[in-house]
């Protein structure tokens, strides 16, 4: 379980990455908290928050393999590359 404090700590950490900078959009309304994205990501980008929803805590680790998106059964996850607008799906 991830508290709000740690979440802030992770996302604020600016680390140089060899991969393109991405941000994650998670539609809580669609997400059913199955945990597939959290458990199957080999880079451990996600952690669950207090309510069980996934949160991208280490986006810098993401190599944009797309594994989480294609395995999200609810279309609740979206990767946005830098510069892309955070449009609601």
């Amino acid at each position: 379980m991830l508290s709000k404090k740690t979440k802030v700590k992770y996302t604020e950490k600016k680390k140089k990455s060899k991969y393109p900078m991405v941000s994650f959009q998670i539609f809580d309304k669609w997400c059913k908290r199955c945990g597939i994205c959290v458990d199957l990501c080999i880079h451990n980008v996600f952690m669950v928050d207090e309510d069980g929803y996934p949160r991208a805590v280490k986006p810098v680790e993401c190599n944009v393999c797309g594994f989480c998106i294609t395995r999200c059964p609810d279309f609740a996850l979206r990767i946005l590359e830098r510069g892309e607008k955070n449009a609601q799906g």
């Binding site: 309304k29 059913k32 597939i36 294609t70 999200c72 059964p73 279309f75 799906g89």
Partner: peptide, 27 residues
């Protein structure tokens, strides 16, 4: 991969999906 999918979904009308958490049908 993530970008194009939404153009094919009736996302304004029928979401979230009816299936249970973790059901593979959405995949």
């Amino acid at each position: 991969k993530s970008i194009d999918v939404y153009a094919y979904l009736r996302h304004e009308k029928k979401f979230p999906l009816i299936w249970c958490a973790g059901c593979g049908n959405g995949i």
